[in-house]
């Protein structure tokens, strides 16, 4: 077992455990903190795949922005901090069954996937730099992803205007 595999196993186990704690911890702020651990585990996955850019972006966007916003929202909501009720509903077995089914489906699908057997090619540092510029060009090129990219930006602008409208103090 190489050191990369050891790091992968540790990071994967940590991510999954943190994910379980997100839904099972009774205090909602603890759930938010566990969510950060889980998201950081995914950043480690990106780093192991030599996708430096995605690893850093994962931290910037999810931990630096979204998680902080979630925590802010939790802290500013009244009486949410003392919420220590039971974490299970009456139909917990249904949810467990559904998630087991999805897990089994994913396992059977991925076991037949050819790409899983291919070893990761070693990438030079200039290769990763090239990958970033190719990504940037793909995002604005008409042959690639310009339409979804623009649609996403319009969606974000709409959400922003909506947020301003809701927050506006009408005199």
């Amino acid at each position: 077992m190489t050191s990369i595999q050891i790091i992968f196993l540790l990071a994967a186990a940590g991510t999954l455990a943190a994910g379980v704690f997100v839904v099972s911890s009774p205090k909602i702020l603890h759930a938010a903190l566990w969510l950060i651990v889980s998201l950081f585990g995914i950043a480690i996955m990106f780093a192991l795949l030599q996708a430096n850019f995605f690893a850093v972006i994962q931290v910037v966007v999810y931990i630096g922005a979204i998680a902080i916003l979630i925590i802010f929202g939790v802290m500013l909501t009244r009486r949410i901090m003392q919420d220590t009720g039971l974490q299970l509903t009456r139909f917990w077995w249904g949810a467990a069954l559904a998630s087991l089914g999805i897990f089994a489906g994913l396992i059977t699908m991925l076991s037949g996937w050819k790409a899983a057997d291919i070893a990761l090619p070693e990438m030079s540092s200039s290769g990763t730099t090239q990958a970033i510029s190719q990504l940037g060009q793909a995002l604005v090129s008409p042959d690639a992803y310009v339409l979804p990219f623009e649609a996403a930006s319009i969606l974000l602008v709409v959400a922003m205007i909506g947020a301003i409208y809701i927050a506006l103090d009408r005199k």
């Binding site: 850019f53 850093v56 970033i132």
Partner: peptide, 22 residues
Amino acid sequence: DLNVGVLYLVAIGGFGILAIVM
């Protein structure tokens, strides 16, 4: 010599914010 060094600086700043929240 990270090829996304500048973004790395920004990302690490997020942990500083998180420390203050905690």
